[in-house]
Design a binder for these strands. Structure first.
Length: 320
DNA sequence: GCGTCCAGGTCTACC
DNA sequence: GGTAGACCTGGACGC
């Protein structure tokens, strides 16, 4: 357990529209930074790693969708130098999507026969990231491979509980994702057995080892590259293939797997594919062609709005 | 109760 | 360079 005694309060003014509730806890249940964070009305207590620091966070909404304001209180173990504190704040603002301007995406989406419903239903929802390094997203992507969602969630829960730090602050105890260094030297078979993650244990350990031994760009570093170069870089990571790279890529990909291939086939072509796995490539091409640089945002909005879209478009869309 | 299938992919050996 | 098969586990399903 890590006691985070140093606290820093500040305000965040996200770029409107910004719906705090939809962004912090997505309609399909996706958490902000950790599945073990705590929600209470318009406040969330959570924890993540920013610039190698374990950071405890209390975020409370103090505004509206069109005039958003967030009261943030950040908890650290030690007081960092001023420039580091500013940098950590800036990373946090980026992670919660508060610096993300949705106007251009909305202008495109309102002209799209599928997306127009989703952006109406989820107006002000922003995409978020789980820290400033690729590790949490990459582990999540590996745990999503070849498993039903419930099992992926169970595996993720176990990895965080058993191997992550527990941040103690503001009377709460929040489990955060482990760093690569915390898992790199684990025994593979013991890791696999403890969290029942099977062959994924080896992939996560290889990934952690590479990130510990070699320098790898942060998510912001990858953003500085072109989308294609960022993806190429991500594909160098062990256990990360086309689907996983599209989940991690900060430029946003179109991560189609066998489940989403079925959903998007119905949306694009009005019918269920004969073989979901074989449909992945066609669906991916159609999505990227249709939405281009907004493919990830389109994917994100649609997946979060499947229940409403099923009714509005009169399609039976299998929920995640 | 038991056996079989397959799921929100990736890697590797083999051709 | 293309592709079949292996990989952990557990829930669903048929018998």
């Amino acid at each position: 357990m890590v006691n985070l005694e140093q606290s820093f309060a500040f305000k965040i003014n996200p770029i409107a529209p910004y719906d705090f509730g939809l962004t912090i806890r997505k309609p399909m249940g996706w958490s902000l930074f950790s599945p073990l964070e705590i929600y209470q009305k318009t406040t969330v207590w959570t924890a993540l790693r920013l610039e190698t620091n374990l950071v405890g966070l209390k975020l409370s909404s103090r505004g509206t969708v069109n005039e958003p304001c967030i009261a943030a209180k950040m908890y650290l173990k030690e007081k960092p130098p001023r420039e580091n504190l500013d940098s950590i704040k800036s990373s946090l603002i980026h992670c919660i999507g508060a610096d993300d301007d949705l106007h251009e995406f909305y202008a495109m989406a309102k002209e799209d026969s599928i997306l127009k419903h989703a952006v109406e239903d989820l107006y002000g929802m922003h995409s978020t990231s789980m820290g400033d390094t690729v590790f949490p997203s990459a582990v999540l992507a590996i745990l999503l491979q070849m498993a039903p969602l419930k099992r992926s969630n169970d595996m993720m829960d176990c990895v965080i509980r058993k191997y992550g730090d527990v941040a103690e602050f503001d009377g709460k105890m929040i489990h955060a994702w482990p760093s690569p260094g915390q898992v790199a030297n684990l025994n593979p078979s013991e890791f696999a057995k403890t969290c029942k993650i099977g062959y994924r244990a080896g992939r996560i350990l290889n990934l952690a080892e590479k990130l510990v031994k070699e320098s790898f760009p942060t998510l912001r570093g990858l953003e500085m590259l072109s989308s294609e170069d960022a993806k190429k870089k991500l594909l160098e990571l062990p256990g990360i293939g086309d689907y996983s790279a599209d989940i991690i890529n900060p430029h946003g990909g179109f991560p189609i797997d066998v489940w989403s291939a079925e959903v998007f086939s119905k949306l694009f072509f009005g019918k269920e594919p004969e073989n979901n796995r074989e449909a992945v490539e066609d669906v991916k091409n159609e999505g990227v062609c249709r939405w281009g640089k907004w493919s990830w945002m389109a994917f994100f909005y649609i997946v979060q709005d499947l229940e409403n879209l099923s009714k509005k478009l009169n399609l039976k869309l299998r929920l995640a």
